[in-house]
Structures are given as C-alpha cells and as structure tokens.
C-alpha cells in the first residue's frame, strides 16, 4: 500500500493487510469498504433489513439525491433535475479485518425516477425490497438498477410470513428481466437477509466471471 504525498491512499490494493509502510505507524489501516444498496418503497422493510444483519445499530445520515421529475419517458422533454436531501440509513458488517461491507438503505419515492448516484456508485449490487401488497412502490428502484446494469435481486418481504402472490406473478407484474432473481425473504431474520444478499453477490460474481471469460 502506498501513500501519496497528498494523504490520499488506496486501501485494499493487495488485500489491504500489508504493512502500513513508512508514513504514520500510528495510523490504523482501515478495511477495504464495499457496499450494497437496499432500495424499495416506503415502509417495505429497508431499515429492518439493515438492522437484522448490521453489527451496529443502523445510523442515519443525509445525502443529496438528484430526482428527475416524471415525464422522463417523453424523450422530447428534458427532465427537470432537482437535488433533494434525503435521510438514508445504513449499517455495516466486518467480514474480516481487511474487509467491511456497508449496507445503505435508500428511500423510495413513487412518481420520481431516481438517481442515487451518490450512494450507488461503486456498489457491488442492490436489493429491491417489495411489499407484495404495494408493488408499484418499487418500480423506480427496479428501473434504476436495470438501466444502470447493476446486479440486483427483487426480494419480497414476507410480512407475517405470508406472501399473497406467486413469485411468477410478481415477476410478471414488475416486468423484470429473466436474469433478475425474485425471492421471498423475511427482513427480520438475519439468516434470511444474509442469504438474499448472497443471491445478489453470486449474481454479481457470475457476471464478472462471464465478462472476464469473454475478455
């Protein structure tokens, strides 16, 4: 690991475990941070999901998002962009001393196309949480991940252990591509959240490996 004179360093280049080098022996080596995005409409269980698996109580911070006003479909019309400050909550899991996974829960909003660039840039993948009783709340998030080609899965939160729709019906209603996993999970169960995140990560890995195979 090298430190440039400006004090900006890139961690994790070779696993981040290397010696701290000359600079400042007292400075602790941070882990390589990676992140995933937990998206979905209001009240679908984003915070619950983060809380189930995070090693810290979910924290809330304010981030700037750019919302694009409705009418984006109309190509003749330049969408109006507005920057809004939204509350976003997040948690983290130390996977090993050199690797820390952050989970950012981003708010959903109907009628707006979203640009969560601030949060999503560099994310390993996303999870779109869906409450099957209110499917249309998640279109914005689904579209966002699809358009940006970010690996994601749709996760139906089984409120009270019940899912009233078949997964196929949900897939059809959301019109997601065949390669997007649609699963049922329980936001309150750590194991269920873990396995759902793993579905996304395995998809992400598959894609990278396929891309490398082609290269």
């Amino acid at each position: 690991m090298k430190a440039d004179p400006s004090g900006t360093v890139s961690p994790g280049a070779a696993g981040a475990a290397g010696s701290p080098g000359a600079a400042d022996a007292a400075v602790q080596q941070p882990p390589l941070p990676v992140k995933m995005v937990i998206a979905g409409g209001f009240g679908v269980g984003k915070t619950t999901t983060v809380a189930s698996i995070s090693e810290i109580e979910p924290l809330t911070t304010e981030a700037a998002i750019t919302t694009v006003a409705a009418g984006v479909d109309d190509l003749s019309h330049t969408p109006e962009k507005t920057t809004t400050t939204v509350a976003m909550d997040f948690g983290c899991i130390t996977l090993d001393p050199t690797l820390k996974l952050y989970l950012f829960g981003t708010p959903g909003q109907e009628r707006f196309g979203f640009m969560w660039d601030d949060v999503v840039e560099g994310a390993l993948g996303g999870l779109v949480i869906v409450d099957a009783r209110r499917l249309d709340d998640c279109y914005a998030a689904v579209d966002y991940f699809e358009n940006r080609d970010i690996p994601f899965a749709v996760a139906l939160n089984a409120f009270d252990g019940k899912v009233e729709y078949e997964l196929d019906e949900v897939r059809w209603a959301l019109d997601v591509s065949d390669h997007v996993p649609v699963t049922v999970f329980d936001a309150r169960e750590r194991g269920s959240v873990r396995d759902t995140l793993l579905v996304v990560l395995e998809l992400a890995l598959e894609r990278v490996e396929r891309a490398q195979g082609r290269a």
């Binding site: 994790g12 390589l32 990676v34 899991i93 996977l95 090993d96 690797l99 996974l101 390993l124 873990r194 995140l197 793993l198 990560l201 395995e202 992400a204 890995l205 990278v208």
Partner: peptide, 9 residues
C-alpha cells in the same frame, strides 16, 4: 473482492 465478500458473509 466479490469472492471474499461472499465467503465472509
């Protein structure tokens, strides 16, 4: 990196 995250999780 993805493999390490998967293994860790």
């Amino acid at each position: 990196v993805l493999r390490r995250v998967i293994d860790g999780l």
